[in-house]
Computed example of a mutant assay.
Amino acid sequence: MRWNVWVADWQMQCCGEPFSVGATVSWTLVPADRAWLAQALGEETAATIEWSEEHHDEPSAGQMRVEAQVAGISAVHARLRLAEGKDAYSYPVDGVLSPLTSADGWTPNQGEREFIGYLVTLTADEDPLT
């Protein structure tokens, strides 16, 4: 089995444990917000991301717990664009992926592009649902 998983910068910085390629992780996964990821990384890349790693939500029917091996890590950096309107907020655009061998949540920004998270590929020989 193989999954592409979004790991948000703030999730790692708050409660995450550093990990590296080849390590075994035990994570809680929830369905990825593909609309948000499409803004950051484009439709094609977002379509490959099934799950987001989660530390804070209450248990729900849509989540799963996995134990799997980290097969790949890419840092995601994006420009932040300010939305228009009364309740303006920033959202990521023009994201780029940079391969890494480890992740600790504190990857430096790349010029105008800010670090927003990791795209992680997990693999397991068997169905790791617990």
Rank of each mutant, 00 (worst) to 15 (best):
P31G: 02
H77W: 05
I73C: 07
P99Y: 00
M12H: 06
M64G: 06
T45Q: 15
F115N: 05
G105H: 05
E84T: 11
G85E: 14
M1K: 04
P108H: 08
L37A: 04
V93W: 04
Q13L: 06
N109A: 14
S52C: 13
W106F: 15
A35P: 05
R79V: 05
R79T: 05
M12K: 04
A124T: 02
R65Y: 10
H77C: 02
G42F: 13
V93S: 05
D104Q: 06
A40H: 15
N4V: 10
L37D: 04
G111D: 02
L97V: 05
W36Q: 14
A124M: 00
M64F: 02
A71N: 05
H77V: 07
S90M: 13
W10I: 12
T48L: 13
M12Y: 08
L41R: 07
V70T: 03
G72K: 13
W10V: 11
L97T: 01
D94M: 05
G95F: 03
G85S: 13
A71H: 02
E54I: 06
A46P: 12
V120E: 04
F115G: 03
F19G: 03
W36C: 09
S60M: 08
R79L: 08
D87N: 14
P31I: 03
V70I: 11
G72M: 11
E112W: 05
W51E: 01
E126I: 03
C15H: 15
A75C: 06
V7E: 02
N109R: 10
L82S: 09
